[in-house]
Design a protein around this nucleic acid. Structure first.
Lengths: 240, 240
DNA sequence: CGCACCCCAATTGTCTGTCAATCATGTTGA
DNA sequence: TCAACATGATTGACAGACAATTGGGGTGCG
């Protein structure tokens, strides 16, 4: 039942992955300017290929390009972040609802397993484990919802908000509450209560959004304090 | 308050628009194979530029590329169409809800104006007018909903389903019912009944989906009858 | 000292040409 | 009849080149 690796592994795809990871991990920071040449070195491919990869990441919302100025790692304004979290809440709420309506006991079990896995990782202090369990949870949710378009939309939004995943997960007490919120979702799915599942999903995302916007505001304050100095230098791509 | 035309009008953008229009209008038919050279001629640009434009349309879901085989105008399976319509119903339902929660009287008035415009175009038998009014309606809805991410998501889904817009609008009696459905949405927004607006949006999309899937099934039957003859030829890009 | 203007380096946008890798087709041979 | 092979077409990818544009630095003037 596994996907029979439809990956002809073209160089462009490799470059995309390298650049995407560099952004998601934070190696390339929001606002940082990217020259094509530096990306060529980073990805180890020619300029043509890099430009195509950049186009892809641009469409994913990870990069924004100003004509004749080149690509820049996308930086979310507070308004954009708010919009994206709102959209994410809608999408995941619907996913939760559909998971109840269309999923079976196996999906419910997978949800519970993912939550347990996350609780385990949390107690072990493994942030990577937490993120992995989070991925498993959403995989199970989407498997139950049985809507590929919805899944891809959720993935896209999550990627654009990936910037917050690390800081949010580290926030004191956040992981614990997050586990509780996911457990509530799983419980609603087990109970086959669609409305409750939808509401639980929305609550989870709203809690995430609240924290993320707080973090964003804090960063903005911090950035404002050094504005005029480092900020200009960073936007010019002079700070690694 | 108008957007100060942020269009540096690069050749790539022009090529994108040409190809996108060719697909949306149906000049390039679903399943048709596209060689890079033919696209170069069609768009009037070099191969490098065409490849970037194709990458963009690929991310919009209008083109699907098989490595080492080249781009193909995306063809929706019944399952994919169903998923997309379901997603669209969710998104537009939420847009309707938000339009009630956040919109003001001006948005409600714009919705009504768009419906009247559509009714006018329908009586005049102007399909182009109908589509234009439809665009105005969604512009008003999204203006009221005040969520740019949601708007873009809706636009993306609508584009992927653009194939059905023409055939659906032509369907006997469909335009009339469509006007009635949109009027119901506008009425709910005027009445400030969020739940009713959401439900009306969902009903509208579900009606569209029902017809589209019917059209799709009919086309599939028709295509099956000539399979082995024209179909292979078309997939090979030999039929214009 | 401040401001407007101009010139220049850096970078992007785009084209052309080239070459290997791969797929699809047609042909040959058992 | 079917399998293996040869062949042509097309994509994937690169390097190089050139015009267009941007941003910055320097200059001159008030």
């Amino acid at each position: 039942m596994n996907d029979a690796a439809p990956t002809p592994l073209t160089a462009r795809r490799v470059a995309e992955d390298i650049l995407r990871n560099a952004i998601l991990v934070g190696e390339l920071k929001p606002g940082q300017r990217l020259t094509e040449r530096s990306l060529c070195e980073l990805a180890g491919v020619g300029r043509t290929t890099v430009r195509e990869a950049v186009r892809q990441l641009e469409s994913e919302g990870l990069i924004s390009t100003v004509p004749h100025r080149g690509p820049v790692v996308a930086v979310l304004s507070e308004g954009e972040a708010r919009d994206l979290y709102e959209l994410r809440a809608m999408l995941e709420g619907q996913a939760g609802r559909l998971c109840v309506l269309r999923g079976d006991a196996r999906h419910a079990a997978a949800l519970h397993a993912a939550v347990d896995q996350m609780e385990h990782a949390r107690q072990a202090g493994s942030m990577l484990g937490i993120l992995e369990a989070n991925g498993a949870f959403y995989a199970a949710l989407n498997a139950g919802a049985r809507n590929e378009a919805l899944r891809q939309a959720m993935l896209g939004v999550q990627n654009r908000l990936a910037f917050f995943r690390f800081t949010s997960t580290r926030w004191p007490g956040r992981a614990e509450r997050s586990v509780a919120e996911l457990r509530a979702i799983a419980a609603a799915v087990v109970a086959r209560d669609a409305a409750a599942a939808e509401a639980a999903c929305i609550r989870h995302i709203e809690a995430s959004a609240e924290l993320a916007l707080l973090v964003l505001a804090e960063r903005a304050r911090g950035a404002a304090m050094v504005r005029g100095g480092r900020r200009n230098a960073m936007e010019r791509g002079l700070i690694p």
